[in-house]
């Protein structure tokens, strides 16, 4: 029968949770790519229709407020994993 000492148990769980935290943080790439695309499209749009600048900025701002939050979800999980492991 294989059995582990308490230190081994602790270190296995700690390793797993730290690797998990690292993986969770990868999700932050997504909003970055999306926002970058939106910014590129917005510059193009302002060049084409300069009088709609205010509306374009509003659209970008509200879009960014919504899309930034998936990153925070993954950060919340990552910090749970770092501290609870």
């Amino acid at each position: 029968m294989v059995s582990f000492s308490p230190e081994v148990v602790d270190s296995i769980i700690r390793t797993a949770s730290l690797i998990g935290a690292g993986l969770a943080v990868i999700a932050g790439i997504g909003p970055g790519i999306g926002m970058g695309y939106a910014a590129g499209a917005a510059t193009e749009a302002v060049r084409r229709q300069p009088e709609a600048r205010g509306a374009i900025i509003t659209t970008m701002l509200l879009g960014q407020v919504i899309s930034g939050s998936t990153g925070i979800y993954s950060l919340v999980i990552a910090i749970f994993l770092i501290f609870s492991g």
Partner: peptide, 16 residues
């Protein structure tokens, strides 16, 4: 909004 298209998208991405 005052930048070139590519530059703007890298700028916003890095700021994110």
């Amino acid at each position: 909004l005052d930048m070139q298209e590519k530059k703007a998208s890298t700028f916003i991405r890095n700021r994110y």
